[in-house]
Amino acid sequence: MTVDVSFYTTAELAREAGVTRRTVMHYAELNLLTPDQVTASGRALYGPYSLRLLRDLMDLRALGMPLEEARDMVTLRRATHDITGQYRRDWTRADIPISDERLQALHARLRAINESYARQAENLARFDRWLSKRFTGDQASVATPEEDSATG
Rank of each mutant, 00 (worst) to 15 (best):
D128W: 14
I98D: 13
S149V: 13
L32V: 00
P97F: 12
V74M: 13
R111H: 13
A62I: 03
R119I: 02
T136Q: 12
Q37L: 10
S6P: 03
L13E: 11
E69C: 01
R93M: 03
V142N: 03
A44F: 11
R15M: 15
V3R: 03
S116R: 10
D4I: 15
F135H: 10
M65F: 14
R93D: 04
L76A: 01
T20Q: 01
R15V: 08
V5M: 06
A94K: 05
R21H: 06
T84K: 06
I96S: 01
T80D: 02
S50C: 13
Q139A: 12
S116C: 08
R126S: 04
E12Q: 12
G64L: 04
L57N: 11
L13D: 05
A17M: 04
S99H: 02
V38A: 15
P35A: 04
E122H: 11
F135R: 14
W91L: 06
V142D: 09
A150W: 01
H26E: 14
G47D: 12
E29V: 01
H81Y: 00
R89L: 10
T151P: 03
S41L: 06
D138R: 15
G137H: 12
E101I: 10
H81V: 08
V24D: 02
G42S: 11
L13P: 11
A79K: 01
L131F: 09
R71V: 13
T39P: 09
D4Y: 09
R134M: 13
I98N: 12
D95V: 00
P97A: 07
A143V: 00
R78L: 11
S116K: 07
R21F: 06
E69S: 13
D95Q: 00
L124V: 13
L131R: 02
E69V: 02
Q139I: 15
T23E: 09
Y117E: 08
P145E: 14
G85K: 08
D148E: 11
P66M: 02
R93A: 07
R129Y: 00
H81W: 03
D148F: 12
T84M: 01
R52H: 15
D72Y: 00
T34Q: 05
A108T: 12
T23S: 05
G42W: 04
I96V: 15
Q37K: 15
A62K: 14
T34H: 07
M1Y: 08
W130G: 07
I98C: 10
S141N: 04
Q139P: 04
T39M: 08
M1F: 14
T23W: 09
R55V: 11
E146W: 01
A44I: 06
A62M: 09
A40W: 06
R111V: 10
L131E: 08
